[in-house]
Amino acid sequence: MSETKGLTRQQMADRVAWEFQDGWIVNLGVGIPTMCSNTDIGDRAITYHSENGVIGYGPVAPAGEEDLNLVNAGGQNVTLKPGAAVVHHADSFGVIRGGHIDATVMGAYQVAMTGDFANWKLKGQKGGGIGGAMDLAACAKRVFIILEHVTRDGSPRLVPACDLPVTARGVVTLVMTNYGLFEPTGDGFRLREIAPGLTVEEIRAATGGTLRVADGLRPVTMGT
């Protein structure tokens, strides 16, 4: 499959960010999810939350303007929005465990048709670091996952059932890959939006689980 097909990582993050609604508190996990804070989604007031205690941050800081004391979950230097707060780690987790996170965006190694996902340990890996993922998966109102559609060796990441240690079961509400926007339905993945340059047949061949096409399938669309 041509490398020119599909979405860039920033485009994947942009599309997910357009799901955020005015007034939401959104947790952004390590990796591609952190790029959501770079997205201009108009006048919607979004409070970005990081487990390390930075609440109300904005885009990644431009080169030369970094504050080394301000980092997101991925260790990137970020900017602060008016009204932002830097709180104790325990207080940050209090926001999560109190059910105040409207959506969490996380990366993953695999997502299953049932909405299970695995993001903390690979096969053969000793140990692993589940971090705050278990708290977020259990307590956030919505779980959005961003990941590459296939592994480096071409194996599917959207699978019938996870064969890696599962982080949480049945919680994923939306999946964004470089191939399109999907919803786990329990017995498959519904393709809602398709990335440029790809066909449904190509996506089906690269998907481990059953692929269903939504009525009114459209190209990946940024904005309202």
Rank of each mutant, 00 (worst) to 15 (best):
E3Q: 13
T167Q: 11
S92I: 04
L158R: 03
T79K: 05
V175Y: 01
G128F: 04
E19N: 10
R142Y: 10
E202C: 06
H89A: 06
A73C: 06
V95D: 03
N69P: 02
F117G: 02
S92F: 07
V171N: 08
D187S: 15
A168L: 09
H88L: 10
D187G: 15
L181I: 14
A138E: 11
A17I: 10
V87R: 02
G132D: 07
E148V: 10
I32P: 00
E148M: 12
G188Y: 02
A118T: 06
A73S: 07
T114Y: 02
T151I: 07
D215Q: 09
G127E: 03
E148D: 14
T104I: 06
D215K: 15
A108H: 01
G132N: 10
P219M: 12
T47A: 08
E183T: 14
V220G: 00
E66Q: 08
K81R: 15
I194A: 00
G128A: 06
A90D: 11
R169T: 11
W18F: 15
R97C: 05
L158S: 05
G31N: 11
T4Y: 14
H89M: 08
A85M: 12
Q125V: 04
L147F: 04
A168S: 13
V143D: 00
G197A: 04
V16F: 11
C36Q: 00
L122K: 15
G129D: 06
R157A: 09
D135K: 05
P33E: 05
S2R: 12
K141E: 13
Q125A: 08
F144D: 01
V16W: 00
W24I: 08
M35Q: 13
P62I: 14
G74T: 10
C139Y: 11
V95G: 02
A85D: 05
V87H: 01
R97P: 00
N69V: 04
R152S: 12
I130V: 15
P196S: 13
I32F: 01
R97F: 04
G75V: 09
E19W: 08
G124I: 09
R218S: 10
A137C: 05
D67V: 11
I46V: 09
D163S: 15
L164S: 14
L80R: 07
K81P: 01
L174Y: 04
G208Q: 08
R152I: 11
G23Q: 07
F20G: 01
S92R: 01
P59M: 08
G6R: 02
F144Y: 15
V220Q: 00
C139P: 02
T199C: 06
G124S: 05
F93S: 07
C36K: 00
R44T: 12
H100M: 13
A63I: 09
D43E: 13
M1C: 10
Q110K: 11
T173N: 14
S92H: 03
I46H: 01
G94D: 09
G188Q: 08
R212T: 11
S155H: 14
G83I: 09
A168Y: 15
P156A: 12
R97D: 05
I145C: 09
D43T: 13
N178C: 13
G23V: 10
N72Y: 03
I55G: 01
R44P: 07
Q76G: 03
G128M: 06
L158Y: 02
W120K: 06
C36R: 00
V171Q: 08
D153K: 14
A168N: 12
